[in-house]
């Protein structure tokens, strides 16, 4: 499933992702396209609380694609965000 939240600013990218996760058929991935940098912190955080692993990829200047997949085992949100912040520049 794909979700395009470009043009949306906080808190909508996160809220709409959470909504979409609720409707996501089992064994499917959710691809979220966003151009709002703060969402790179809020979406993985909410996703990992719900047991989804997140992959972030920078598409172009100011645009990112997040891929959310149900994880096999319960996730440690801390480890997930740690991993993402290593791949992008959102670390603090």
């Amino acid at each position: 499933m794909k979700l395009d939240v470009r043009g949306e600013i906080c808190p909508y990218p996160m809220m709409r992702t959470v909504d979409a996760l609720g409707k996501l058929p089992p064994n499917e991935e959710l691809e979220v396209l966003t151009d709002h940098a703060p969402a790179l912190a809020t979406i993985p955080w909410e996703a990992s609380k719900r047991g989804y692993a997140v992959d972030v990829e920078k598409v172009r200047s100011g645009e990112w694609k997040l891929t959310l997949r149900k994880a096999q085992s319960p996730l440690d949100p801390m480890a997930v965000v740690q991993e993402i912040s290593q791949k992008t520049n959102i670390g603090g």
């Binding site: 801390m78 912040s85 603090g92």
Partner: peptide, 8 residues
């Protein structure tokens, strides 16, 4: 749970 953002 609180999530931290460690540096790269």
């Amino acid at each position: 749970p609180e999530v931290r953002f460690p540096g790269q």
